[in-house]
Amino acid sequence: MNGSNPSLVSAIRGPVMLITLGVLLAMDHNGTISFGRTWPVLLIMFGVFKLAERAGAKSA
């Protein structure tokens, strides 16, 4: 990755993670499924983003 022209993937990582967090918490609060069970989704998302970044950096 080069710092001068960061990829779109790493730029949207933060907001997408934030949205995911919000959705999980909202689901927790309206009783659909507890955050205590769904939190690993955040780890998975983070991992997926890291992979996508690597792939993007290689192809660039």
């Binding site: 949207i12 933060g14 907001p15 997408v16 934030l18 949205i19 967090l21 919000g22 918490l25 909202a26």
Partner: peptide, 13 residues
């Protein structure tokens, strides 16, 4: 309140 997080994320995105 979690919808604040969602809105924030969506706006940023």
């Amino acid at each position: 309140w979690p919808y604040i997080l969602i809105i924030w994320g969506v706006l940023r995105l």
